[in-house]
Amino acid sequence: PAAEQLTPAQLGGLAEESLQLMSKLKDSSSSCAVDVSAVWWEVAGSRELCVVTACEGSVSLWTPLAADAWGKVYTWQLGEMAVIQIVPLPDACNLMCVALGDLEIAEIRWLLLYSSENDSFKQSLLRSGNIKAVLGLKARRVVSSSRTACGQQVEVVSLSETGRSRDGRTLMPPEETVLGFAEVEGLQDALVGTTAANGVVVWNLRTGQLLRKMHLGYSYPASVCHRAYSDSGLLFVVLSHPHAKESESCRNPAFRVVAFNPKTARSTGVVFSSLPAGHAGRRGDVRDACAAAVLTSGAVAVWDLQLGHCTALLPPGPQGDWALARWATTPGCLLAGQRDGTVCLYRY
């Protein structure tokens, strides 16, 4: 059904109450918003959580002002290539990355928000090529997979506080193209990837070893990993299924948590989170046990991945459909964006 046809009854008790609007910003110069994220910005000992918005040719930094208002601090012009996604660095301050390209990522650039060394905003090329997936890791590292004439390259690059790349390490690549990454919580040196052939691979980040290749089966195509954690000898991986469709059963979930025994490569589904009735899915975003995704109806859905069901649905507003949904780095803060550059911050 069209989004405006959704009623509280159709939402099955889901309500907007669990999403409380905190503030709103509008980038009036934005031609077409493509991504939104949050970043820590520290100047002269004062640290603030800021919003970063990306439109096709530029990325802007917004800081909170008084009375729930936001002010644009700086805009990086990124040249001829279009922005594809913002790549936040989870525990970094004053530093983030951005992926640029046409249909696929051709460049990763780092953006420096502030440096006491030179009091300036900078940008520089971190990596170029036929890049298939990129993720910002803890300790100012960036992992990416790319296709080269010799096969696939999976590389981790470390950045200094002022952005300059310090060193790189190549991880042993699997045969299949890696399309997603997730750091493994609870294991400092472990990294998980999902492949185009529906595989889950595990690396040792310190040694570069490819430790295990495990298969997800073909029941759930196009799985992308968002989060991984190790507990009680098992590896739990949170996967999304961007092309999931509405289903009456759990055969086609938007998200699922799968437990792997890395020793035997056997796996079992733990929790399935289905789409709300009448909606089809898109790629989502996961933080802790919360998942969010923009649906093809233009609504934003939020799931509790422990309960395995949708807990909130944000229908399209009067201005139009939602286009972006990302969790901020602080818990319980959802950034929802529209194509016209409007970004709403919700407390969940």
Binding site: Q209, S230, G233, L234, N261, P262, R266, S267, T268
Partner: peptide
């Protein structure tokens, strides 16, 4: 180590796989 339908589980799976995998 424990037993389940996922096979024998080891709390030190990461260290063990790192010791076994080619480098």
């Amino acid at each position: 180590c424990g037993e389940s339908d996922l096979g024998p589980i080891s709390l030190k799976w990461f260290e063990e796989l790192s010791a076994e995998a080619p480098s």
